[in-house]
Design a binder for these strands. Structure first.
Lengths: 278, 278
DNA sequence: TAGTGGTCTAGACCACTGC
DNA sequence: CAGTGGTCTAGACCACTAA
């Protein structure tokens, strides 16, 4: 007998974790949604090693079959895991468990090793330490910066600046975008405009110019990715990025660099270290 | 004439932004999902002031009517805005636009004003500066800390520690949870066990004990909220929290505090400042 | 009781991939 | 072409709130 709306009670009687499982906690919800419980099960499967990192998940129809739920419900459950960055979906191909470990960015470390807009030298070192192969690609150009960057650098409206854009990869996978902006008044015609500014990084060049950055401010925000960011970082709209905006100033207070870094929120740990100087 | 499946072509002919709108960017998607375009429209409505902060959104049936889409599609669109922290939904009541501005946490500022596990004095000052009324509530107890905290503090398995739990509110709304853990060997019987440790905060007490914290490490992660966190911060599972884990050590390297702070990711901006000390 | 939002179902169409 | 995932629809049931 087919009902238009299959009664809930029948469904609950199925001998199936998706249909039966209750969960401790969440006291306000007497009944967790089935797609969330299904997401929990799949998450457990990933964490338990049933679906190892890098492996393919069963197809949505297969999962729907196994758990005896409609396919859109499987899709909804996978949407939860996608938003968490746990799985990666390719239309027409399938769903795979994401393989990269959590990456670490240590702000103090970066300063000691080599300041390059907070990027290359330190990025290489950190990825290598984590057992990953680092690669990054730099393009240098002169552009009109966005308003907020222009404000930081004290530029007039429409005034161009030097920008070093960097795309960073770990084990071949895109993991970070960075754009380092510098005033042309400071950086034009220097080694900073070269793809490789030399051993000391751009901060070394700035120091040699008598404009060594000494005061740093980083602001951290979490937000949805822009279309470009999502494209490069292989993110979906439901995932989040961490945006770090760094200002570097000389001891005299002159802003010599504004750096915007973007990375997938689920993938990174940010570490800040400092000492009491009192 | 009713079709089981209303053809897409008919729908697209409607004179309606949800059905027609195309969007620049997102080059990989020839056709954005309708619920995402609807979410975009509602987001615009919020940002443009059509739905001011604190006001109620029209009901889902009303929105479905206005945009000529099925109600579940409206629900799906609102789910996007909920995940972004833009709206707050109460079952049986309705959907309202979230009112709190973005809050700022300045790590350097905190150290100067008053270290209290990175919380009270600085929190009050920052909220006041933002024009908000700060309130926080502290409970002090002795408990067995979670494993990671025990490891930081160098405690034996099952060994208890002193914990100061703090719930923080801005304009009456919950905005942050913090748990400051200290070894009983250091803090037992001191003013740190009092609800109010005095003018210098717990760091002042530690200093008076000859255990002034001098080295700080903060680790920042973004993740889904635990059920308890979601309950207190009024978050949903699709939203994200920022977790900050702070370690404070004396100059000799003794860990004197481990502090875990939790806040809604969409609501906070973290600021770190430092100077080159070389 | 009427109204709110949350979820589910069955079936369908679509875009994309690889064979 | 078959198989993948993404989305949509219409209708329904449910939990919750306020009057």
């Amino acid at each position: 007998m087919l009902n238009i709306q299959q009664p809930r009670s029948e469904i609950r009687e199925e001998d199936n974790a998706v249909n039966d499982a209750e969960r401790p906690g969440m006291p306000l919800e007497s009944q967790r949604a089935r797609y969330r419980r299904l997401a929990d099960l799949l998450r457990q499967g990933i964490e338990s090693g049933e679906y190892p990192a890098g492996s393919a998940l069963p197809s949505e129809p297969a999962l729907a079959d196994r758990f005896r739920v409609p396919r859109p419900l499987v899709n909804q459950a996978l949407r939860v895991l996608r938003a968490e960055g746990l799985v990666h979906v390719q239309r027409g191909i399938g769903t795979t468990v994401r393989a990269l470990p959590v990456l670490r960015r240590d702000a103090e470390l970066r300063q000691r090793i080599r300041g390059d807009g907070g990027a290359r030298g330190a990025f290489d070192a950190e990825m290598t330490r984590a057992g990953l192969t680092a690669r990054s690609q730099v393009t240098v150009s002169r552009e009109v910066p966005p308003d907020d960057v222009a404000r930081v650098l004290g530029l007039a409206a429409g005034e161009r600046a030097l920008v070093r854009r960097r795309e960073m990869f770990a084990d071949g996978q895109p993991v970070q975008l960075a754009a380092s902006w510098l005033p042309l008044a400071v950086a034009a015609g220097t080694a900073i405009e070269a793809d490789d500014p030399g051993a000391g990084g751009i901060y070394g060049v700035l120091a040699a110019l008598g404009q060594a950055p000494e005061q740093f401010t980083e602001s951290v925000r979490v937000r949805p990715p822009s279309p470009k960011e999502a494209l490069f970082l292989m993110l979906e709209e439901d995932q989040r990025v961490i945006s770090i905006r760094r200002e570097a100033r000389t001891a005299a207070g002159l802003a010599v660099e504004a750096n915007v870094m973007i990375m997938a929120a689920h993938q990174w740990e940010l570490v800040y270290r400092w000492s009491a100087t009192g």
